Measured scan of single mutants.
Amino acid sequence: DTFTFTLDGIEVRLHGASEELIKTIEELLKRDIRWEELEKWIREWEK
Protein backbone atom coordinates (compact mmCIF):
# COMPACT_ATOMS: atom_id res chain seq x y z
CA ASP A 1 0.00 0.00 0.00
CA THR A 2 1.04 3.59 -0.62
CA PHE A 3 0.13 6.42 1.73
CA THR A 4 0.12 9.80 -0.03
CA PHE A 5 -0.16 13.21 1.62
CA THR A 6 0.88 16.80 0.92
CA LEU A 7 2.99 18.80 3.34
CA ASP A 8 4.33 22.31 2.69
CA GLY A 9 3.27 21.91 -0.95
CA ILE A 10 5.28 18.69 -1.37
CA GLU A 11 3.50 15.48 -2.32
CA VAL A 12 4.87 12.63 -0.22
CA ARG A 13 4.34 8.94 -0.94
CA LEU A 14 5.24 6.32 1.62
CA HIS A 15 5.37 2.82 0.17
CA GLY A 16 4.72 -0.07 2.52
CA ALA A 17 3.90 2.15 5.49
CA SER A 18 2.37 0.32 8.42
CA GLU A 19 -1.13 1.19 9.59
CA GLU A 20 0.38 2.47 12.84
CA LEU A 21 2.77 4.79 11.00
CA ILE A 22 -0.03 6.11 8.77
CA LYS A 23 -2.26 6.86 11.77
CA THR A 24 0.59 8.63 13.55
CA ILE A 25 1.41 10.79 10.51
CA GLU A 26 -2.28 11.66 10.10
CA GLU A 27 -2.33 12.85 13.73
CA LEU A 28 0.82 14.93 13.20
CA LEU A 29 -0.68 16.51 10.06
CA LYS A 30 -3.76 17.55 12.06
CA ARG A 31 -1.41 19.53 14.32
CA ASP A 32 -0.16 21.54 11.33
CA ILE A 33 3.33 20.07 11.64
CA ARG A 34 6.14 21.49 9.50
CA TRP A 35 8.11 19.36 7.02
CA GLU A 36 11.32 19.54 9.09
CA GLU A 37 9.49 18.22 12.15
CA LEU A 38 7.92 15.33 10.26
CA GLU A 39 11.21 14.43 8.59
CA LYS A 40 12.93 14.29 12.00
CA TRP A 41 10.09 12.20 13.39
CA ILE A 42 10.26 9.71 10.49
CA ARG A 43 14.03 9.31 10.95
CA GLU A 44 13.45 8.44 14.61
CA TRP A 45 10.69 6.00 13.62
CA GLU A 46 13.04 4.16 11.24
CA LYS A 47 15.57 3.38 14.01
Rank of each mutant, 00 (worst) to 15 (best):
L29F: 04
G16M: 08
L14R: 00
L7N: 01
F5W: 02
W45S: 04
I33D: 04
F3Q: 02
K47H: 14
T6V: 13
W41G: 02
W41I: 15
T4I: 14
E27Q: 11
R31G: 15
T2A: 10
L38Q: 00
G9W: 05
D32R: 00
E37G: 04
L28S: 03
K40H: 12
G16F: 09
R13K: 15
K23A: 14
G9F: 05
K30P: 02
T24C: 08
L38N: 00
T24V: 12
I42R: 01
D1Y: 13
E27K: 08
L14K: 00
D32G: 13
E27N: 08
G16D: 10
E11V: 11
I25R: 00
F5Y: 02
I25N: 00
E36F: 11
R13Q: 15
I25W: 01
E19R: 11
L38R: 00
A17F: 08
F5R: 00
F3N: 01
L21T: 11
G16L: 07
R34H: 10
L38I: 05
T6Q: 10
K40I: 12
L7P: 00
R34P: 06
D32P: 09
R43F: 08
T2C: 07
E27M: 12
D1A: 12
E20L: 12
L28I: 06
E20F: 09
E27C: 11
E46I: 13
W45T: 04
R31I: 08
T4Q: 07
R43M: 13
D32T: 06
I22T: 05
F3A: 02
V12I: 12
R43T: 11
E20H: 11
L7I: 15
R31N: 13
A17G: 04
E11P: 03
V12N: 01
H15R: 05
T24N: 15
I10C: 13
G9P: 00
R43G: 07
D8E: 08
D1P: 11
H15K: 09
F3M: 03
K30Q: 11
I25C: 02
H15T: 13
R31A: 14
E37A: 09
W45A: 06
E46D: 14
D8T: 02
I33A: 07
L28V: 06
V12W: 06
L14N: 00
L7W: 09
R43I: 10
E36T: 14
T2D: 15
I10E: 08
E26Y: 09
E27Y: 10
G9Y: 05
H15W: 09
I42N: 00
H15N: 13
E26L: 15
L29C: 04
W45L: 06
E19L: 14
K23N: 12
R31Y: 11
K47G: 14
L28H: 05
A17K: 04
A17H: 03
E37Q: 11
L7S: 03
G9C: 03
